[in-house]
Design a binder for these strands. Sequence first.
DNA 1: CCTGTGACATAAG
DNA 2: CCTTATGCCACAG
Length: 110
Amino acid sequence: MSQSDKLNFFEQVYQVVQTIPEGRVTSYGAIARFLGAPQSARMVGWAMNASHLREDIPAHRVVNRLGLLTGKHHFEGTNLMQQLLENEGITVVDNQILNFETVFWDPQNP
DNA sequence: CCTGTGACATAAG
DNA sequence: CCTTATGCCACAG
């Protein structure tokens, strides 16, 4: 293997995001760390920004480490991200996920 | 090639 | 609680 042994960073992010089960969420840092770049969480966010180019990317399940819906403005409307999360049984108040640690899903420790 | 930008994380004051 | 600053890397222009 020479060229495809290492997938693009974006692809890796999408792979992980698609693995997030319903009713669960994860953080950019957790994904970055899973990919071996704990200090490159921004790349995850950047990948999510381009997630609209992909399908089946539940970006609403990815929030920052505080459980804050920092990227909700990238969804249509003003509360679509929250609606999607609540639709999966996640409670969101003031753009923040309640019981974040309870619904948190670690790609390295499912 | 260089610069700006970004849905983050962490540290410091 | 707040704002700054730094690191990290990919991409657009």
